[in-house]
């Protein structure tokens, strides 16, 4: 297994996706702002769709299902970004901050 031949192996993609996923998870827990969490969520989604694509390319009998799933994820991501943006703005308008720790209206 030559290093230049990596792109022909499923495991490469799976490892990459795992790493991206881990990065996303770490970002998710460590970021303190809504926007930062949004960014991390995008990373997780990217990891997921890489997985879909990779399995589709290497194992699936149906040539399109992975791509369709990836497309679906893209649409979700776009919708998520739009909603995330508007929520961020709305939160910012009300709290003058997007730090999740400042948004504490429900604290007893």
């Amino acid at each position: 297994m030559s290093i230049l031949n990596l792109h022909n192996y499923l495991n490469t993609y799976l490892v990459l996706a795992a790493l991206l996923f881990a990065m996303g998870v770490y970002g998710m827990v460590s970021r303190r702002t809504l926007v930062g969490m949004l960014i991390s969520a995008e990373l997780i989604l990217a990891a997921a769709s890489i997985n879909f694509m990779a399995f589709n390319r290497f194992t699936a009998p149906d040539p399109t299902v992975g791509q369709i799933f990836a497309l679906f994820i893209m649409a979700i991501a776009a919708a998520e970004a739009a909603i995330g943006l508007s929520i961020t703005i709305a939160v910012y308008r009300n709290y003058k901050s997007v730090d999740i720790e400042d948004i504490v209206d429900l604290k007893g």
Binding site: L34, L38, E42, A78, A81, G84, L85, T88, I89, Y92
Partner: peptide, 15 residues
């Protein structure tokens, strides 16, 4: 689209 939207959010909310 997504990256630009997030950039916008950063620009507007300045976190």
């Amino acid at each position: 689209a997504v990256c630009i939207t997030i950039s916008f959010a950063i620009l507007l909310a300045a976190p």
